[in-house]
Nucleic acid binder design. Sequence first.
DNA 1: CATCAATTGGACTAAATAGTCCAAATATAT
DNA 2: ATATATTTGGACTATTTAGTCCAATTGATG
Lengths: 208, 208
Amino acid sequence: MTTADSHNGRRLTARGAKTRARIVAAATDLMYIRGVGATTLDDVLAASGVSKSQLYHHFDGKDALIRAVIDHVGERIIERERDALSHVSTIRGLRRWRDALVQNNGLRHGAYGCALGSLASEVSDHDALARQALSQLFTEWQGLLAGVLRRLQDGGALPPEASVDQLATGLMAALQGGYLLAQTARDVTPMATSIDMALAHIESLSER
Amino acid sequence: MTTADSHNGRRLTARGAKTRARIVAAATDLMYIRGVGATTLDDVLAASGVSKSQLYHHFDGKDALIRAVIDHVGERIIERERDALSHVSTIRGLRRWRDALVQNNGLRHGAYGCALGSLASEVSDHDALARQALSQLFTEWQGLLAGVLRRLQDGGALPPEASVDQLATGLMAALQGGYLLAQTARDVTPMATSIDMALAHIESLSER
DNA sequence: CATCAATTGGACTAAATAGTCCAAATATAT
DNA sequence: ATATATTTGGACTATTTAGTCCAATTGATG
């Protein structure tokens, strides 16, 4: 899956794996809070308590580390969303999913935005590999939403002619746009409003 | 309006104004293409053919220059959107607005995203003044959309009980989220899809 | 144990970068 | 014309930063 490690043919000791994980974890936190560009390798070293040679032993350089962070964030989010969505088959379930995301983002008053969206915005135009990975992750996330919509459809809560994939795209865009507006306003409200509009639209499709 | 100039009490010659404008123009382009963090002051100097003392004569430092870029991009976009939206009062007019944005973004296959949204994502968490300026600009832009919706309402194309401001927020989020997905996919399609969903929702409110 | 590979510490380098400084040149106003 | 303020050129400095290197240590394997 990940091609971010510089030593693919080599073996990896338990100790080495632990070090690598600590580096990625520290880099993930720093890049989320400070942004990718504003996070220096020395920051990462200090935060993870690791030496420079360890970092360069496990990663080819900063770009490779960034890609590892993307993989890590992606795994975390996909796992979280799979847990949250894979058994949802009602509008009420979707609303509970919305509530959790809004509440969680509200804890920071919208600051830092979506972990995946912020990475995508900063990195997409500067590293083709990273962009592709992010694009795939968005697609996967959208697929989970499409799964919910398909189950709604099967249950009669969405008409058969509704285009599940397009609705999932619209819902994902509402979510990401909401994250951005909330981040800029330092207020979750616009995020809540925009997801609500998308959900209202989905709901309205069966009432006409 | 702008507080980005470092020498507010001083006079400004025609020559000085021209230099200042050249700096801002070059910085705007570079920061859009390369991102804010990846644009160095030396890049700006080279692109604008200006000396270091000129840059520091007109701006307190990089942060002040970034704020001037935000003001500049904001003015450009608000002007463009005012021209495009202030006389729109039909759904068809909104669709033409959508077409223009999608076509324009399609020229770059989605690359670089929305000039304002990308700045917001990169800068909001790192400079409170810049964040506030960006937040105001989004609000102003949203106000133009709300104006269109209010005219739709006056013309009977939107029911009186519809919340124009919330719909404008949702439409703006769909737009920004669409820009981000298009940027990540290097394909405008998701942007078109997400705006279409928002417009379909707005349209559907008068058909129930 | 012996051997080889993985891992680590940390000093070192070269380049990039934001910011400073001052003298010279140009414009403005009286 | 003269005095004053703005504008400009560009060398210079401090720091930061990504990346290199090598010797020493630790772990895996036969």
